[in-house]
Amino acid sequence: MAWTREDMAARAARELQDGFYVNLGIGIPTLVANYIPAGIQVTLQSENGMLGMGPFPYEGEADPDLINAGKQTITELPSSSYFSSADSFAMIRGGHIALSILGGMQVAENGDLANWMVPGKMVKGMGGAMDLVAGVRRVVVVMEHTEKSGAAKLVKRCSLPLTGAGVVDLLITDLGVFEIGKDGVRLTELAAGVTLDEVRAKTEAAFDTSV
């Protein structure tokens, strides 16, 4: 039995450390905020110009001037601050954000990430993803291990246009956890009930294992 989206978010939340400034992407990464371990305080950055993101507002209290990067209404905390997009990306590009957790379409064994474009099909844009993977000190990708079609997403080389080259430090999928470094990919954890054989069968990239 592989991990659910919630399990993956909870596992990603274990990468957080007390005092971290963190940027969470859209999708499963957003759920990570629900699993911040007790006793750990992190500050969430929203790249549209806010540090210290609070919870969603109560019904009837949504403020159109206060949204997150996913365009959802949010609230502020006593410690919050607002700033321009240029200042926001000075934080990101300048290495001031400790951790970025984002989604992926493909991750390659050399740490390349593709998550913004399918040529001829999907035209949405990269938003802040290219800046985040280039500038944030540690990049964690959370994604399903395979496409719905069964095609591998942890691949030898990305076939989709890259978001960044050699940028992924850790990959969390529904099957397990992979560290990616200069020496390649290493499987460090298996999801409960998942076998090494199953991971091998569903992975195109070469990987070592410590499980």
Binding site: T30, N34, F56, I74
Partner: peptide, 21 residues
């Protein structure tokens, strides 16, 4: 008009996404 793209709220007295942030 200040239209909102994604009005996202939480019920009162219940913690949801971001509550721990």
């Amino acid at each position: 008009e200040k239209r909102i793209e994604r009005v996202t709220t939480r019920p009162r007295e219940t913690a949801l996404a971001g509550e721990n942030a």
